[in-house]
Simulated scan of single mutants.
Amino acid sequence: MAKLCKDGFEKEFIENQKEKYGIAYTQNILSGRWKALILWFLKSEKHRYGEIKRFLWDISQGSLTKQLRELEADGLVERRVFPEVPPRVEYSLTEKGQAFIPIINMMENFGKTYGENTEDNQPTKNVLG
């Protein structure tokens, strides 16, 4: 399968496995328990770190920071630091992040439609607690 290096996917994989690359790239963006929820939360407006932390109340500070940095490195989230005391940081979606929102909306709709019960009528596990 695809191997990631520090600069992304190996060039050989991108060139020789084009039919797999698109899904592998998208899957890599969403790898991380909280990324889809972070993107969903940012889809309508920018938010400060503390607001995101309150929304994802069960996430550790380290995990949230890591997920935000990865989304920023992937070009989906922009981090804006205001030169104030105390410092203020806001996160918002980039153009690329906005282009990803239809995928997030489809995930939301799928979950609303099929998430209440599994096929054997057992309730699904709530990730948020």
Score class of each variant (00 low, 15 high):
Ile59Glu: 10
Ile104Met: 03
Glu116Phe: 10
Pro123Asn: 12
Glu84Phe: 06
Leu64Ala: 04
His47Thr: 00
Ile101Ala: 01
Val89Ile: 15
Leu76Thr: 02
Glu70Gln: 13
Ile103Glu: 03
Ile59Trp: 10
Glu116Arg: 11
Asn117Asp: 07
Asn109Cys: 07
Asn117Trp: 14
Thr124Trp: 07
Gln61Glu: 12
Phe82Leu: 15
Leu68Pro: 03
Lys46Leu: 00
Leu71Val: 06
Lys112Arg: 13
Gly75Trp: 03
Lys46Pro: 00
Thr94Gln: 01
Pro83Arg: 14
Asp120His: 11
Glu72Thr: 07
Thr94Asp: 00
Val77Ala: 02
Asn109Asp: 12
Val81Thr: 04
Gly75Lys: 05
Phe41Glu: 09
Arg79Ser: 05
Ile104Ser: 04
Glu84Cys: 09
Lys53Val: 00
Gly75Met: 08
Thr124Val: 15
Asn121Gln: 14
Gly97Thr: 01
Lys46His: 06
Leu56Trp: 08
Arg54Leu: 13
Gln67Arg: 06
Glu119Asp: 08
Leu56Cys: 09
Gly111Arg: 06
Gly115Asn: 07
Ser63Arg: 11
Tyr114His: 12
Glu95Asn: 07
Phe41Arg: 11
Lys53Ala: 08
Glu70Pro: 00
Ile52Gln: 05
Asp120Asn: 15
Gly50Phe: 11
Glu78Lys: 15
Phe110Ala: 12
Glu116His: 11
Lys43Cys: 03
Leu76Ser: 04
Arg88His: 05
Phe82Lys: 13
Asn121Thr: 07
Leu68Asp: 04
Arg69Glu: 04
Val89Leu: 09
Gly111Asp: 07
Tyr114Asp: 02
Ser44Gly: 05
